[in-house]
Design a protein around this nucleic acid. Structure first.
Lengths: 224, 224
DNA sequence: CGCCGGTTCCATCGAACGGTGGAGCGGGAA
DNA sequence: TTCCCGCTCCACCGTTCGATGGAACCGGCG
């Protein structure tokens, strides 16, 4: 049973959501809050699985409330799904930084909304199409660099593939599993690519991958 | 009723998916394909709502097949959900460009997988957490890098020093020589810092050093 | 046709690595 | 003073890594 905390300043919206959730066997209403302060307090008190969080609210807004809920140390924090009227670029960015697990539109058909809540409760992240498009654009237009010191171009496709995975700290066994090959094969490719690049250890290979721009650091926050 | 075309080169995977789908009232199996070519042909013939597409296949791979299916002009194209064994950085980018609506892992629990298919059929996009994290990182990594995730500040001076040298691909013996210590001491420091950071290998430590901004690839120095 | 490069796999071996459980030392805080 | 923390070092042991020397398959090319 997934318990849901409903946060919205409009009574009608809360009522509607509550009715939908109560009509769904797998979901239950953990509580309702009409503003951010109450939401933070209730999240700590009732410990819901998912918080459906409106953005625009009097007093403490939904984003700030999300931050506070997720940084409240006691036990595993709930998943927070941001609920907005339309899509809003300005909120997406901060909401994601705040740690939101989803970004849903109030226009979303009920059935879909309920499915979304369950998906989010399960640990996945879910975003409305418009939001996702923005994410993808940001991903696609990422400052990529042509990664080609001459030596890199001497590598075969497989070798390059292995190098990328090595640079993500995978073990030979992991890489073998990922590529559906035997570990022996990975060793061969790794040995050959290290020879070509004049490297003596896996550690050097990882450093090489970063320094050559083959892989690019992307900032990470410790999310747990 | 959402019709699903199953594309995977492994018979067992197809069978498993088909069984799952047949057991779900809201879903039906539109067909099965074992390679990309067949998938493209069948997508055009049976016009499914959703295509569950494996990436690695003999002949035409899943990504290319996705492109072809989505660019086949006749009528509204189906949604394509990429199905992979683990998460794969290299595929995400091209899959998204190809127009995939989802990126799911074969490890995903059945119920969740079926929910995902329906979410995708409804027009939303859905990604496994690891994939989403990547997207968010790309989106959120604009105002410059956070040079020290909280975990880094828990390291002692020596540990930090060792981590920097590890991130330069030095062996334990090298680091010991550099710091005029015994190799045993380096092992201790390394062990402790890996514990603190939740890392399991030297390779992960190197990646962490780059991703956290502790060390920065040469030739890219932005003042942020 | 044979050759070559890319890919896949095997067996073996020593070295490096990582985990564990210690130990002693020194400085600062309680 | 005692206690804790950071630093230094040791021994042991299993796993992973990297090196080596093979072998086989396939596709393209001369």
């Amino acid at each position: 049973m997934v318990s849901v905390l409903i946060v919205d300043d409009q009574m009608l919206v809360r009522t509607g959501l509550a009715a939908l959730i109560r009509a769904t066997p797998a979901l239950e209403v953990a509580g309702e809050a009409a503003d951010g302060e109450t939401a933070v307090a209730m999240a700590a008190a009732v410990r819901p699985d998912v918080v459906l969080m409106d953005v625009r609210m009097p007093g403490l807004d939904g984003i700030t409330a999300t931050e506070r809920i997720l940084s409240a140390g006691a036990g595993p924090p709930p998943k927070v799904a941001i609920l907005t009227t339309y899509d809003l670029d300005e909120y997406v960015y901060t909401a994601l930084r705040a740690g939101a697990s989803g970004f849903l539109l109030k226009e979303t058909p009920p059935q879909q909304l309920l499915a979304a809540v369950q998906v989010i409760a399960a640990g996945d992240m879910l975003f409305a199409p418009t939001v996702t498009r923005r994410l993808i654009e940001a991903y696609a237009t990422r400052p990529g660099r042509a990664a080609s010191p001459a030596a890199l171009s001497t590598l075969t496709g497989r070798e390059l593939q292995v190098l990328r995975l090595v640079a993500r700290a995978l073990s030979n066994a992991d890489i073998a599993a990922q590529l559906s090959l035997s570990e022996a094969t990975i060793k061969t490719h790794l040995h050959r690519l290290m020879s070509k690049l004049g490297l003596c250890s896996r550690a050097q290979a990882i450093v090489y991958a970063y320094e050559s721009g083959l892989v690019v650091p992307a900032s990470r926050d410790d999310g747990g």
